[in-house]
Simulated assay, not measured.
Amino acid sequence: MSTAEFESQLHQWRHSLHKHPETGFEEVSTSEYVAQQLEAMGLEVHRGLGGTGLVASLTVGDNPTVIGLRADMDALNITETTGKSYCSQNHGKMHACGHDGHMTMLLGAAKLLTEKKDFNGTVRFVFQPAEEHGRGAKAMMADGLFDQFPIDEFYGVHNWPGLPAGTISTRVGGIMASEDNFEIKIKGKGTHAARPHMGKDPLVIAAEIILALQTIISRNLDPSIPAVISCTEIHTDGIRNAIPTHVVITGDTRSYSPDVQKMLEERMRKICEGICHMHDAECEFSYTHEFSPTVNHEKCVQTAVLAARNIVGDSKVDANVPAMMASEDFGAFIEKVPGCFAFIGNGVEADGKGFTPLHNSNYDINDDILAVGANYFAEIIRTRMPI
Rank of each mutant, 00 (worst) to 15 (best):
E233A: 14
H197L: 10
T245W: 05
T253W: 03
E233C: 14
N241P: 06
H246L: 15
P202F: 02
T215A: 10
C231H: 09
G238M: 15
G199F: 07
L211K: 03
T215S: 11
P244T: 11
N220A: 08
R240I: 12
E208Y: 07
L213W: 07
I249M: 11
G199M: 10
H235K: 15
N220C: 09
V228I: 15
I225M: 05
I243P: 13
I216S: 07
H235V: 15
I229P: 00
K200C: 08
P244A: 09
E208Q: 13
I239Q: 14
P223Q: 12
H246R: 13
P223I: 10
H246G: 09
T250Q: 09
V204I: 11
H197D: 12
P223A: 12
T215V: 05
D201P: 12
L203G: 08
I216L: 10
A242Y: 13
A227V: 00
S230L: 11
S218H: 04
S224K: 09
A212V: 01
E233S: 13
D252A: 08
E208I: 04
I217F: 06
H197V: 11
I225F: 03
V247T: 08
G238D: 15
N220I: 07
G199T: 05
L221R: 07
G238W: 12
I210N: 02
N241E: 04
D252N: 14
E208K: 01
I225C: 04
D252Q: 08
A207L: 08
A227S: 02
D201H: 02
I216Q: 08
A207I: 06
P244N: 12
L211M: 10
A227F: 00
D201F: 01
A227T: 00
S218W: 09
D252E: 09
I209Q: 04
I209H: 01
N241W: 06
I216H: 09
R219Y: 04
T250Y: 08
I205D: 10
V228H: 04
V247N: 02
C231D: 15
D237A: 02
S218P: 00
H235E: 15
G199K: 07
I243Q: 10
D222G: 01
L221K: 07
V204F: 06
I229A: 05
G199E: 08
T250P: 01
N241C: 05
A242T: 15
I217A: 05
V248Q: 12
T253P: 00
S218C: 06
V228C: 03
I239K: 14
D252L: 09
H235A: 14
H197S: 13
H246V: 13
I239H: 11
T253G: 02
E208D: 14
E233V: 15
I239P: 07
H197K: 12
